[in-house]
Design a protein around this nucleic acid. Structure first.
Lengths: 214, 214
DNA sequence: TAGATTGTTAATCGATTAACAATC
DNA sequence: TAGATTGTTAATCGATTAACAATC
């Protein structure tokens, strides 16, 4: 299936998925590209183009069956996976991630949390005990860990990534500013640069302010 | 100045900014588009196009002066602003944001934190006391709040946004899945959809897995 | 001057939107 | 059948890359 879906389409899929889940909850059985476009605030054209990337199974004159479409997106994104992940750094952000995220809904299973602060070793987040960061290598090798969620201070990042990489972990969700791909071109990384986003918000607000002045 | 810089360029500016800060720290005085491209992992062509959006002040045969370029980006992004912001929801994510982010480096000043859990009223994060959510209206009106960082559960979001909006807050950093712009088309919103990002990572890993199998 | 590197135009590539025949 | 709505092709738009003359 699928001749290479473009990055822009992929980035929209979780959004489709969310809205389709909502429609399903409201017992809506079918939806047209026009209606979906309205919800997604895009064009009907784009919706049809997007959904056609993975084999059209809308029905002319009818629309798309909500549940079937939702299930298909689950499939494309691979949300049925249970990629084994460890979280490194149980500070505020790490704790927030470990406690809040519904890993199973996004294809992951959180199986370990590590930190270097011995005061919190053994305490539990989301029913997972916090372990000594020194055990990362043995744990990752023994448990075939697929991914690491990196929630540590920037200066700790490079060393940890090296150790994780050497323990077979090749996929990262990176909350630091350390540029993983610069050093390891073969890994898969999803970067979360919160401060970049805040600056982008600042830009829009600043622009808006200037427009009003002019 | 500047005939409308495109969204894609703006999204890259914080990255330029970060790398320029690093170069400055290393006392590097000038940098060529080629070198910058290498650091940013893009093309020299794109770097020159980007930097030219806001008036070329590189020098032929020399490159770009690091500090001047950095300062210019500060200007474009408006990082010298001190937009007054409140944070709503002092759970894990809210606390992480309030405690970690360098607001002043990104054009903001955090002046209030609100929650609905009376057990934590009065306790401090980043030297700001947590207040009763009921006081949001009066506080925002009195203090001319520019932006709200929304870190509450999804079902609390709509009500809070309505109250914030009516108190003059028109800019949001939104960590919930509530679609603010759907209800208030005139507000400025920067959405952070962590679960969407996790799904995108899942997609890449899933694709990678399938490629290896084939 | 010669070498380096920019500013800028032109070419390419990709993503979005429009249009419409196919068909449920 | 008539109306609705898809699948798909073509047109447009925007972003990236290539090329090269200008110039420090």
């Amino acid at each position: 299936m699928s001749n290479k879906i473009s990055k822009s389409v992929i980035r929209r899929l979780p959004r489709y998925y969310r809205f389709l889940c909502e429609l399903e909850e409201q017992d809506v059985e079918r939806v047209s590209s026009g209606k979906l476009a309205e919800i997604m605030r895009t064009t009907a054209s784009q919706v049809r183009q997007d959904l056609n990337c993975f084999g059209g199974f809308g029905h002319q004159g009818y629309g798309y069956p909500v549940t079937k479409l939702k299930d298909e997106i689950i499939n494309i994104l691979g949300l049925h996976n249970k990629f084994k992940a460890v979280l490194i750094g149980a500070g505020h952000i790490g704790t927030a991630i470990a406690a809040h995220m519904k890993f199973d809904k996004a294809g992951f299973e959180l199986v370990g949390i590590f930190d270097n602060n011995e005061d919190i070793f053994g305490s539990r987040i989301n029913n997972i005990s916090i372990s000594d960061e020194k055990e990362i290598e043995s744990f990752c090798k023994e448990n075939n860990i697929d991914a690491a969620f990196l929630c540590v201070p920037r200066n700790a990042a490079a060393g940890l990534v090296e150790r994780l990489y050497n323990s077979g972990v090749k996929n990262f969700w990176n909350f630091t500013h350390y540029d993983i791909q610069g050093d390891y071109p073969d890994v898969i990384v999803e970067n979360v640069h919160l401060s970049d986003m805040m600056m982008t918000l600042c830009y829009s607000m600043n622009e808006d302010k200037n427009e009003q002045t002019n």
